[in-house]
Simulated assay, not measured.
Amino acid sequence: MRGSGFLLPIVGLLGAGTAGAADVDLTEFKTTATVPPYYSAPSYSAPSWSVVGSISPTFTDNALFTRDNRRPDVYYEPDVSVRLDGNLTNDLSYRLYARAQYEAFSREKDSNFSVARMGARLTENWDGWRFSAIYEHRYDFDGIYRDVAFVSDDVMGSVARDFHVNNAAFSPLLLLTYRFSDLPEARRWRFDAVLGIEVKLDPRWSIVSTPLFEAYWFTDGLNTGRRDQLYSVDLGLKYNFASNVSLTTTVLYEARTSNVPLRRYRDLRIGPRLDFAF
């Protein structure tokens, strides 16, 4: 599903993407079930820089993300962001960021994928709810930063909140996106509903899960009229080495349905992920 060379025009037909959750970056919202700093209630402070990222070797039983041509493989995914965070008021925070991410497969090189993006976000905290407006400019590449497949501008709005019950944290998120792109097939609306769950076993160990639902409405080119839905469930065990370094081993099942039969698939992924923030 993630083509190389002559397959690039068809990449738009699948909505382009990473194995983590189709084509749009959810790391800001879905990297772990832990409530991240993004969700903290803002208080005024000077702007601060940080480097945030993850490294994750992962096994998949459907490296090409297709319905019929299923092939198992292992891929390696570094994902690093540089961020500038600050506050305009006690309740209004901002983030500027640049991010690089790629997936390198062991055997199925046609699935190699990479993306570079720059973005900005404003978040208003109101009575425990977080309302965000996000703009992101991104470049999707064929292979590992080889040829530009297409260029996109994503405009997003989200609402989120955290709930705590004893040793459990629940972080629901709703996200709506429209993608403008120089490739007509990549233009679409997208809706995400995510629930981050973390149950602490002790100060270092947690059970984590992030069930996800995504819906796509493609608007242009050969994808006009296409409707996709993606369902993802996972279960993981997380160990905190420190407040800014953790290792999570996860089993994830993903299924995509579509009114275009060839775009339907299912996938099982297993692997550890090292998360860090400095």
Rank of each mutant, 00 (worst) to 15 (best):
D147E: 12
M118N: 09
T248K: 09
P261K: 10
S181R: 02
R204D: 08
P9K: 07
R146N: 08
H164I: 14
S243I: 12
N223H: 02
T123G: 13
A255N: 12
Y216G: 00
A215F: 10
W129T: 01
A46N: 07
F163S: 08
I207A: 07
L64W: 00
F141S: 08
F131A: 02
A133Q: 06
D154K: 04
G236K: 03
Y102Q: 09
A193R: 03
V35L: 10
E103R: 00
A277K: 14
Y38Q: 08
E28K: 05
S50A: 13
R188L: 05
S181P: 01
N166E: 14
D234C: 07
D154V: 12
R263K: 13
W129D: 03
S232M: 11
S81M: 05
S152H: 05
T34A: 14
G53M: 07
W205Q: 10
V165L: 11
R263T: 03
D275R: 09
L201A: 15
L173I: 13
D110L: 12
F29V: 14
A277F: 13
L8R: 08
S232E: 13
R161D: 11
P184Q: 07
T224W: 04
E28G: 08
T248C: 06
R264Q: 15
S209N: 04
K30Q: 15
S93K: 05
E254Y: 03
R107N: 15
R226V: 11
S258M: 06
A104F: 07
S40I: 05
L195G: 10
G5C: 03
Q229P: 00
D154P: 01
F180A: 05
G5S: 10
D142V: 02
A46C: 06
W129S: 01
N167F: 12
T250I: 15
L176R: 01
M1S: 02
D234L: 11
F131N: 01
Y135C: 02
R269T: 13
H137Q: 08
T27H: 12
D85K: 07
N90M: 01
D153P: 01
A193T: 07
S209G: 11
K30S: 15
L235E: 00
Y253V: 11
F278G: 09
L96N: 00
P57V: 03
S40W: 05
W217N: 14
P172C: 02
L212R: 07
I197S: 04
D79W: 01
A186L: 02
F105Q: 03
E28F: 09
R190E: 15
G196L: 05
R188Q: 14
Y139F: 12
D192K: 06
E214R: 11
F59R: 08
N62Y: 04
R83S: 03
G143P: 00
R107W: 06
A116P: 00
L92D: 05
L262M: 13
F163H: 10
D162G: 10
R190T: 14
T177G: 01
V82Q: 00
T123V: 08
D85S: 11
T34M: 10
V194Y: 11
W205I: 08
K238L: 15
V155W: 13
P9S: 09
